[in-house]
Amino acid sequence: MASEAFPASRGVKRYAFGWQSFLASNEVGLLAVIAVFALVFAYANPGFTSPFNLYALSRVLAIDVVIGFSMMVVLVTGGLNLAVGSIAVSAVMVGGYLMQVAGLPIPLAVVLAIAFGTLLGWINGFLTVRMRVHSFIVTLATMSIFFGAMILATQADAFNELPRAFIGFGKERVFGFVSILLFVALAVWLGLMVVFHLTGLGRELLAAGASPAAARISGLRVDRATIICHSLSGGLATLAGLMLTMRNGAALPSMAGHIGSDWLLPAFLAPVLGGTLLTGGVVSVTGTLLGATLVTVLTNGLLQLQIGEFWVQLFLGLVLLLAVTLNSLRRAFTWRPHRAAS
């Protein structure tokens, strides 16, 4: 739609906000779907709302949210990071070593582990920028390299005598039924909201992802943006890995499956359900949070209904397929993305 109908200048609104578009937004839709499922599950199975189940749910949710964020920040650039799981395991094993063997104080070990994960992410970003190939192939290679190196270094042995304080933190409850880990995830959510909505850097990252050519010509440093996003992804993946370690009670080389590939589905599900575009430049931080919530509620509810855990994966695959198809339908009705020649 052309906008000639609007008078110039005086009529230009500084912010675009309308109740209609707000109610039709992805986030509100997701919230409604989550509410419906939660009600159905609560009705079908009273155990769903038991404090213990809510605690378990919030703990899993916290981890899935952060995994989703770790992929989301790379999707911003129009790239992706297959190595999230692999980075997480590698950095967690470093953290495990620092805590259990080197005996470093917990906060220091956690910070060093996250720094290590950030470094691995930086390597991904650096290689992507330098080799001028899609991050798919770079992270495909590094997921194998990081995982292989981790297995070689640890000989596939777990660190299962982690300090009690570390494991204990993951078991803390707030109000009796909310895992403290959920507050960690919410803190990350808040941080990313600030970055993507209130800072110049966030705007630059989005611009670089939406159209690298236009951003570069306008004097933005696109390569730097790519590297920042990958580094951030590595750090967030590590945080998720540490949270999972607290839940498991040990640093396990197998926690993300073979070469970390078990994380791929949850990592993509949350941001894609939340409305983050795979083509880059559009992000929904809250959407990712809600996307992860939907996935966790569905998984938890289905398991509670005694549907075999193996069918849940099939179900999540269908959800992903449905979500991307709906997104593409919606886009087809509103606008067609401009394909920049690479």
């Binding site: 589905l265 193996f310 069918w311 994966q313 099939l314 397929l321």
Partner: peptide, 16 residues
Amino acid sequence: IITLATLSIFKGLNLG
């Protein structure tokens, strides 16, 4: 993204 989704569908069928 399509084959990531079908990957999990096919694998889910397999495990189911």
